[in-house]
Amino acid sequence: MIQLQNLHFRYHPKRPLFEGLQVQIDKPGIVGLLGSNGAGKTTLLHLLAGLRFPWAGSCTVLGSEPRKRQLSWQQQVLFVPETIEMPPRSLQRWLSELAPFYPRFDQRLFEAIVKEFELEVSGKLSELSFGQQKKVMLAFALATQVKVLLLDEPSNGLDIFSKSQLRRIWTRHLPEDTLVVISTHQVRELGAQFDQVVVIDQGKLLFHQSTEVLNARFCIQRSTEEPGKDAVYYEPIPGGYLVLYIAEPGDPETEIDLELLMKAIVEKPEILVHLQNEKVYV
């Protein structure tokens, strides 16, 4: 569905952002796009949406080059940016202007999602709070039922109740053939939703792995005592330590804490070797 081959991109001729980036995503599902600040997550989403063009290499989404912005392709790919600025128009008018351009747009689904978000929209969209505007935009994005949905920090600006609503809505309403790529820093809130994780760092792919493999490959434990040398990484938490181990055959499967894993990889890049193959121990 997404193929980046030897992708090069730079904002400034002397400061490359991506140099030879290779990513391939074949299956639909929810993909977490992670990386530190300035790693290029948003830029990568822009490249995938055809809003920026690569300097070199190839970028294909649904078998087509995003920079061509072909009509049938644009009907299947939608990018929702982090900052939303809704127009000073009523919801009905805004919907009537945009929805007809998306062949699979489902009005009932939109209304259902708006209801689940407990949104009451009256008056102009621009008069809504930032979080409410974001909910309307996310509801619209899901109701378009596009094949590739690119979301930049979707939970930013949402309150804690809305974040759990968003997770529930994804689980309930996301079509099976849709690929959602989510760029986020809030991995503890959204990490459980990811089917795959792509981590980029310093313009290169650090790793791309399914959460199933990550859960099997690593083991998270809470400990009251300081961990020994077998711990890959640990950090103090109230009442003890949160510890990351390499899973051994027979270890119980735990849900990966992506934030802890990211910190571990930054501190000990050698643990990446445990992510290289698809073999699952458990």
Binding site: A49, G50, L51, R69, L71, Q74, Q75, V77, L78, F79, P81, T83, I84, E85, P87, L98, F101, Y102
Partner: peptide
């Protein structure tokens, strides 16, 4: 004048 509006226009499914 605004990135969000630019994005909306550029990705609107219609031929350029």
């Amino acid at each position: 004048s605004a990135p969000f509006k630019t994005i909306q226009l550029l990705q609107l499914p219609a031929k350029p």
